[in-house]
């Protein structure tokens, strides 16, 4: 794992350059810029992968038990999704937005989170590993769903306002596809969030003998679970429009972000992340 601060800043610098290339492609379609962005992001991916493998070899477990480690792992997952999406779906807008999000996330981690977090090693077990892994994957799925809902809005706006020369109209997939991707990502995120809550509660109960029912992060996660459940139910029944569904998803994702950063760092007594 890259621990030295110069390595972190080097990684951030590469990430930033990749994002600039994607931004160039975002403003006006430019295949060369896109390829450069993918190449540099691939380099960041290799750096991170090397760090993770190195850590696993040295410590015989995944770098997941501290806030900083989990953050880097989550950032690595974002890059993996970006690269897969740029390879499989070729939705340049998606890759740009996910890279932008990943960059902001990494920057936050380096500047604030890393220094604010006490890197203590918590009580380890398989259930805890599952709890953290499903939590990270659920955040990832919600992030992907959120970005697709933004893209849905952009495409819907260009269609409704008849902006036939705009980038979203020319370059984004059809509305149906965007909404389907957004819905399915949120569904996957919901299932994973449910598992996260269950694993976390069981783990805590096994460790302490009682349920962790007063922790702010647990309560917030529980509320978010029901928010997403409601949104998924209403949309699958067709009782809300795709536009309303997108807005509900944005609200839910805002809750995820608050839960991840604010509640973990400031409010929660137990959760550090």
């Amino acid at each position: 794992m890259l621990q030295a601060s110069w390595a972190d800043y080097l990684r951030i610098a590469f990430y930033f350059v990749a994002m600039l290339f994607f931004y160039r492609d975002f403003l006006r379609e430019n295949k060369v810029a896109n390829r450069m962005g993918v190449a540099i992001l691939s380099f960041v991916f290799l750096l991170d992968s090397f760090g993770i493998v190195d850590y696993v070899v040295q410590h015989h477990h995944f770098p997941i038990y501290t806030a900083a480690q989990a953050t880097i792992l989550f950032s690595w997952l974002l890059i993996v999704v970006s690269l897969i999406m740029s390879w499989l779906l070729r939705i340049d807008y998606f890759v740009f937005l996910l890279t932008l999000f990943g960059f902001a996330f990494s920057l936050f981690d380096v500047v604030i989170h890393r220094h604010a977090t006490t890197l203590h090693v918590v009580q380890r077990s398989d259930l805890l590993l599952l709890h953290i892994a499903t939590a990270l994957l659920s955040y990832l799925a919600f992030s992907v769903g959120m970005i697709f809902s933004i893209l849905y809005f952009l495409q819907a706006f260009s269609l409704r306002e008849k902006r036939f020369e705009s980038g979203p109209f020319l370059r984004l997939p059809p509305l149906f596809t965007l909404e389907r991707y957004s819905f399915r990502s949120a569904l996957i995120g919901e299932i994973l969030l449910g598992l996260t809550i269950v694993y976390g509660d069981i783990w805590y109960a096994m460790l302490t003998g009682h349920w962790l029912d007063e922790d702010k992060k647990s309560i917030m996660s529980f509320l978010l679970f029901w928010h997403y459940a409601l949104f998924l139910f209403l949309r699958s029944k067709g009782w809300i429009s795709a536009r309303t569904a997108a807005i509900l998803q944005w609200i839910g994702y805002l809750g995820i972000v608050i839960n991840f950063f604010v509640v973990s760092l400031v409010v929660s007594k137990y959760h550090q992340w």
Partner: peptide, 8 residues
Amino acid sequence: SLAKKVFG
């Protein structure tokens, strides 16, 4: 082409 932009 507009229909395809909506429905795929």
